Simulated assay, not measured.
Amino acid sequence: MKAFIVDRYGRNGRRRNGHGAAALRFGEMPDPDLRDNDVLVQIHAAGVNVLDSKIRNGEFKLILPYRLPLILGNDVAGVVVRVGSKVRSFKPGDEVYARPHQDRIGSFAELIAMNESDVAIKPKTLSMEEAASMPLVGLTAWQALIERAHLKKGQKVFIHAGSGGVGTFAIQLAKHVGAFVATTTSTANVEFVKQLGADVVIDYKKENFEDVLHDYDVVLNSLDNDALQKSVRVLKRGGKLISISGPPDPAFAKDIGANAFVGLVMRLLSLRIRRQARSQDIDYSFLFMQANGEQLREISALIDSGAIRPVVDRVFPFESTNDALAYVEKGRAKGKVVIKIG
C-alpha cells in the first residue's frame, strides 16, 4: 500500500519539505497485519495534527519509542474491508472513524488495522473528511473536560487557542455541558469563536489573558510553558490546570510504565509548574489523549444531535501530505486540516 513514512527523526533529513523540517517519504509499505480483534479499514480521509510533526521531529521519543520506518497519522475515517475472527461490533462495509492506539498509528496510508475497541461508527451527518477531523481533538477535549475536570454546568473554564483544532471542539463541548467559557484567539477570529459559543474572547494581540480572567475552575492549556505559568493566576483555589502540551508529570510516567530514568526526567521537567500550582492549591496534570471507541460513540451522538459541528480549515489531496503538515505547523489553521485519501 502507499503511505507517507518517517525514516528517521528530526529536522536533519536529507529531503526537506521547504519549511526546515525533514519531509515524509512517500512510498510503498506492506499491508497491515490483521489480528483477531482488529478491523482493517480502507482510509478515505486522515486528520493532520501538531502531534504528527512532533512525532516526526522526535519530540516524543522518550514517551513513544516508535520503531522506524513509521507511517505517520493519528486520525482516520474510512470503510471496514475485513474483520478479525473475534470481532463482533463491526462488519465489512461499515463507515467508521477513530484515533488509532498510540502504538498503532499510521493513517497517512491507504489501509490501517485497529483494535475494534478504538473504533466507532462514523457520525451519520458528517462526510469522511469532516469525520477524520474529529477523533483526536474530540477525545482530547472529552478526556480533559469531562473525564478529568468533571466540568459541570455553571463552572468557568478557560480554553487556550480557541480557533485551533482542540479549541474549536472544546468550546462547543464546554457550552454543551453548560459551562461559562473564555478563550484566546487572534483579531481575525474573535467573531468566529464567539459563534462557537465562547462567552469571553481575549484578543491576544491586544490583551494579556492573565490580566483579564480570574477565579476560573478549569484551564485547558495547549500552548507553551509561558502560557502555562501564567494560567495559574487565572484559577481559583482548588482549580484544575490541565495541559496537553506538557510538561509531562510523574502521574503520567506511572500511567505509561516509564522506567526510572524517564520517570525522573518527567519529574524534573514538571517540577516548577507543580510547585507553583501546589502553592496556590491548584491541581496540575498533563494529559496525553488515549484511543477510546466508547467515548467516540458519545461524541458521535453529540455531533449527530447538532450539539457539536466540525470545523475544517482545508482539505489537501493525499499526495500533498507534506504540504498539509507544513501548513499545520504554521499554527494558523482555523479548526482542522485534513488529507483526502480515497
Rank of each mutant, 00 (worst) to 15 (best):
G167M: 10
T168Y: 03
L151I: 09
L145Q: 05
N115S: 13
R148P: 08
P135A: 12
A161D: 01
F169H: 01
K175G: 07
V137N: 05
K153P: 08
K124P: 00
H150D: 12
E147F: 13
M134E: 13
H160D: 10
T140G: 01
G162N: 08
G164A: 05
T125R: 08
G154L: 06
G162S: 04
K175H: 12
A131C: 07
G164Y: 06
S127C: 12
Q172F: 06
S133F: 08
L145T: 03
E116K: 05
K156F: 11
L139A: 01
K152V: 03
V157D: 06
M134V: 15
P135M: 08
T140P: 08
H160V: 06
E129Y: 05
G154S: 07
V157G: 09
V137Y: 06
F169C: 11
A141T: 13
W142C: 10
T125V: 14
E130I: 07
M134Y: 06
Q155W: 05
L151G: 00
E130S: 13
I121E: 12
A149L: 09
F158N: 00
R148I: 14
V157M: 12
L173C: 09
V157H: 13
H150P: 09
I171R: 14
A141Q: 04
Q155Y: 09
W142D: 06
E129S: 11
I171E: 04
